[in-house]
Design a protein around this nucleic acid. Sequence first.
DNA 1: TATCATTGCATAGCAAGCTATTCAAGTGGT
DNA 2: ACCACTTGAATAGCTTGCTATGCAATGATA
Lengths: 146, 146
Amino acid sequence: MKDQSAGYLANHMARLFARGLTARIKPLGLTTGTFPALLELWEKDGLTQKELVVRLDIEQATMANTLARMERDGLIFRKKDVGDGRVQRVWLTDHARDLRGPAIQAARAENAAALSGLSEVEQSQFITLMQKVIAARQPKDATVTA
Amino acid sequence: MKDQSAGYLANHMARLFARGLTARIKPLGLTTGTFPALLELWEKDGLTQKELVVRLDIEQATMANTLARMERDGLIFRKKDVGDGRVQRVWLTDHARDLRGPAIQAARAENAAALSGLSEVEQSQFITLMQKVIAARQPKDATVTA
DNA sequence: TATCATTGCATAGCAAGCTATTCAAGTGGT
DNA sequence: ACCACTTGAATAGCTTGCTATGCAATGATA
């Protein structure tokens, strides 16, 4: 029944991933919710909240709360944009920068462990299929379907 | 980067599924969290909380809260087991029973929509791969690995 | 039988997701 | 210059997940 439902399986799988990653990054003082934002910020600092929202497909309110926790925990600080008083730019603290290596290491380890039941070929098939499912849902930019 | 990470993709995909299902079952007065429990209870009533916890791989505390909401919303009621005073058995209300058809219909529709970017073959591959990933994490019952 | 351990459930408190609402800052049109 | 609209962010309030703790009922044992 439920084990044939893609949605149920997706939810269950995501929970298993989250449990695993939570355990691995807890020693670093990190939680799963901050991880996507950190990935973006490690690539490039000084993004606006809006930019993070778009890149990560997270609601604005969720991101605002996540950033508030990250600020509280000394991972980031926010500074008003000089040109536009509405914009808050997000900058990493040195501490957050230091966590990049071990955090990415932990994520890789979790991914490897989670996929250890699949062959090499299956693993890349799996990634590709998830990418396809996600891509099919992304609102095609200029395709004014309405 | 993140689009190659199985964990990130799993999380993103699960959020997309949840968004879709949320919208579809809102008219029924249902939310996503109750869905797994309902699936079990539609199959067979009078389960204990413990049984639901095991079947759905959800923490006990989470299930207790979910059942509390379901009771509040008139989907279930709980009655003490006659033989064991600790056990609460969960029973569906008539209203919850009536929702079975349309709810399952909504879930099927969401699954179909979400997988519409995949071919038939890819869809069953995808299901199989998710099942494998999940199965690899299930604590093999009698395999006392410790 | 009195005590101790286990088992089933509830509660507290937090993270991470969401919608809806509010507010301040910019932008455009007249 | 003024008013209306838009845009970026914050806040309130909810669900759904988690860990940690407490508590009552049961089971086991000295």
